[in-house]
Design a protein around this nucleic acid. Structure first.
Lengths: 236, 236
DNA sequence: CTTCGTCTGATTGTCCGACAACCTACCTGT
DNA sequence: ACAGGTAGGTTGTCGGACAATCAGACGAAG
């Protein structure tokens, strides 16, 4: 499980003034490669099933093959790529069974989240509301399916965060990555974005109502609905 | 999320006889290195905090540094090692907050599992019972804390498997890895093994009873108890 | 016509050696 | 005690090399 990637903890020297909030992000070549590839994957530039050749990537990115290799390994461990021995990595493709599996997993995580609503941290609850507003704003701005999906999934991630476990959030993030990848290529009209936002508002109000059972059935229906449209988009 | 590591799917040529059950495990050097390191970590040969030097590992394992590097990256992504830029990787150390986080995550997964008991697959239910028996047998055999912990956690994994999601099981496995690592070094007497087995039998019987709420509180208490003893062992 | 061996080209898996970037620790002068 | 500089060790990245393996083509044998 990718634990919260902490970057570096300075030695806690005693008695000296500390500027804890200051940080200088250290970006390795591998990290940048991973990010570039992830970007391309989510943008749909690489369709599922496409083989990724190491040397081609290497001089396309202007980095060494060994570095590409490490980046590919990490993305494969993350589930975005599939490695086949001596045949290379291909962009991961989700079949309907995989989609079902992912949705099951999401249901477990988000159900745990909404169940924890009452006992959750105030900040966490606030984050849920804030994420919904970002999502709504993004829908109003109408700036393409990519950012919209991002804010949408970010909202769901705040639900998982209600559990208070950073590891569960990391897991949810990985699951969301798989879905974004699977949906990157399809021409996703789905329902009107405003309708979607309204549905999420409804969901949140049920959660806030305090009726735990109602909240659970709401999230369950919500995800079942998601599986339907995603599976249809992927199934083709 | 480490997806179910499928090894290789032969091309589905049509009309020819297939021997689906046959498989030949392909073991790369990196895999073996990962396995060896994992083994050593779980056995407590490398204490948390210990730095792992790449060259030393390389000629200790008799492989190239680049290969070691890849293995270390994978284990770091798994959470067993922590990589600090330009300072190398160290064996991950869990502080009480981490333990709490892991237990929270486990609770979400296992609670989802026991909630799914009634609607779960028959095989999955059978697997739970079988795992409990393996655990009991291991306790009777009294063959050291390592195998005992393994069968113990395997039982809990079957609970997660009740959800029907392989990805959740993979997540649970990663979480268990972190715990095994944290507990590897401590001299773990804990309570009598037989007592522990009895407690798990009790837990299963509550789950089987069909009283979902009782089952959830049972698993919750069980894990709270676990956090207590683990945190105490790690705390110092 | 199908099946089997062989060959060829391409790609991955692993190794080795090199060097710059960077960190830690010591050492020195004040 | 403190600032600053120096030296050694370790990682991050690179490039090249070679064996192992795979996919496809080609031809021989049944």
């Amino acid at each position: 499980m990718p634990p919260p990637t902490r970057l570096r903890q300075a030695a806690p020297a005693a008695g000296v003034q500390m500027y804890d909030s200051l940080e200088l992000e250290q970006t390795s070549t591998v990290d940048r490669a991973v990010e570039a590839l992830r970007q391309a994957l989510f943008a749909g530039e690489l369709e599922p099933g496409t083989p990724l050749r190491e040397v081609a990537l290497a001089d396309s990115l202007g980095i060494a093959r060994s570095t590409v290799r490490e980046a590919l390994s990490l993305l494969a461990a993350e589930g975005l790529l599939t490695r086949v021995p001596y045949r290379g990595v291909v962009v991961a493709a989700l079949d309907p069974a995989d989609v079902h599996d992912v949705i099951r997993a999401r249901l477990a995580l988000e159900e745990a989240g909404v169940r924890a609503w009452a006992s959750a941290d105030d900040n966490a609850r606030g984050a849920v509301r804030a994420a919904l507003e970002s999502y709504a704003a993004q829908a109003r701005a109408d700036s393409g399916p990519g950012p919209l999906a991002e804010t949408h999934l970010a909202f769901h991630r705040t639900l998982v965060a209600l559990t208070g476990s950073t590891r569960l959030v990391a897991t949810a993030e990985a699951l969301h990555g798989e879905l974004r990848l699977a949906l990157a290529g399809v021409d996703r009209r789905r329902r009107n974005a405003r309708e979607q936002v309204a549905a999420h508002r409804e969901l949140l109000s049920v959660i806030e109502s305090g009726d735990q059972d109602a909240a659970v059935t709401a999230i369950r229906d919500h995800l079942a609905d998601a599986e339907g449209s995603i599976g249809e988009a992927v199934g083709r």
